[in-house]
Structures are given as C-alpha cells and as structure tokens.
Design a protein around this nucleic acid. Structure first.
Length: 185
DNA sequence: AATAGGATTTCCT
DNA sequence: GGAAATCCTATTC
C-alpha cells in the first residue's frame, strides 16, 4: 500500500498523483482516473469551510484515512484525507476503471454495462460496497479490506473545474486521465 | 441531446 | 426552510 507520507501533502498534489493508482476493496479493484482536491477555510465548496462538525471531523485529522459521507441523502462519496493533522483537506475519488471483481460490482450496482459501473463518485461506492462503516479506515494498512496501491502511471493528465459545486475555487482542482473511457458525467 | 424532477441526510441561515 | 462534492428516469426537442 502507499504510505501515509504520500497523503501528508497538498490536496491538489495528492489528487494529481492518485491518478493511475489502484483502489482495492474486498478483492475488487479499479484504476483511479478522476479525482478532486478539497481544502479548508479558503475553499467555500469544502465541508471543512465552516469549521469542524461531526461529519467532517476526519478531514481535520491524520492523512491517509477514508472520509465517506452521504450525499443528497442517497449516495456515499469516497474521499481520502490529506495534509498534516489540524490542516483540513481531502481528495474525492470521482471515477474508476474496473479491473478485478467486475461481476461482483455488477451485482452490487444491479447494472450490466461495465461503463456504467464506477464512472461517478456515488456509483463507485455502490459498486465496491463502500458505506459509512468505512469512515476512518486507513488506506495505508497492508491487510485491511480497503486500500490504495501503486498502479499504472497516468501520463496524460487533464485539469478542470470541480464538478457539481457552485462556489468554484480560483484554481482548477479536478484531475483526470485524458485518455480514459471511464470518466464521470 | 438536453432538460427537469425526485429521493432524502446533514448542515447552515 | 433550503442547499448540497449525485444519480436515475421521464419528457421533450
């Protein structure tokens, strides 16, 4: 697994460098092809913008942990925490290319098309069975059910505004593998 | 292809 | 009360 120093860095750098890596969960895996960086008090679209709450607590803590939350009362969204403790930050995993356990993902999503399995932050959580239970899990631990490993490097990175947020940051904080057929939206 | 509405928790005004 | 880091379905062009 990738170690915590990797996540103890600026959110945008982590978001960029996660592209191409493998997210593994219970024998299933996918290549990360789309991410977004989130910050704290200088980022109005971030959950951490208004300070600590019960929900966003993990964003303020150690790097390399999972922050899952329920979006629109319906879908879980998967983040990994970044920055040193005390400095809020996270990276949202927005899209994957399915690698292993595709049958299991199809079952979880009740969808047949591979293209529609993990191409969105809500979809990929459903495909991999990621719920609130995983909140706080470390993605750095060797033998845990969920983690992030080194993968095939993405050398054609695109950048854009973040998706679905009304308050946009002055920087482009969405990162994606330009050549992937598995981007969201 | 583009647009509109609904499901429904958590947090803010 | 209303918006939000979404997705699905239905309707209209």
């Amino acid at each position: 697994m990738i170690q915590s120093d990797f996540y103890r860095r600026d959110s945008a750098k982590v978001a960029r460098d996660l592209l191409g890596m493998k997210l593994v969960k219970n024998g299933m895996s996918g290549r990360i092809v789309e991410t977004e960086a989130y910050y704290g008090e200088d980022d109005p679209a971030s959950h951490a913008f208004n300070g600590r709450t019960e929900r966003n607590e993990l964003m303020f803590g150690e790097p390399g942990r999972i922050y899952v939350y329920l979006c629109y009362g319906m879908y879980y969204l998967l983040n990994v925490t970044t920055h040193e403790s005390g400095e809020p930050g996270a990276v949202l995993i927005r899209s994957l290319e399915p690698l292993k356990g595709i049958d299991c993902m199809k079952e979880n999503r009740n969808v047949a098309e591979e293209r529609n399995l993990t191409t969105g932050p809500g979809k990929l959580c459903e495909a991999l069975g990621i719920t609130k239970e995983y909140n706080g899990q470390y993605v750095t631990e060797k033998d845990s059910k969920i983690g992030i490993k080194k993968g095939e490097i993405c050398d054609c990175v695109g950048r854009s505004k973040r998706v679905g947020v009304s308050e946009n940051h002055h920087r482009d904080l969405r990162f994606f593998c330009k050549d992937s057929d598995f981007l969201s939206r």
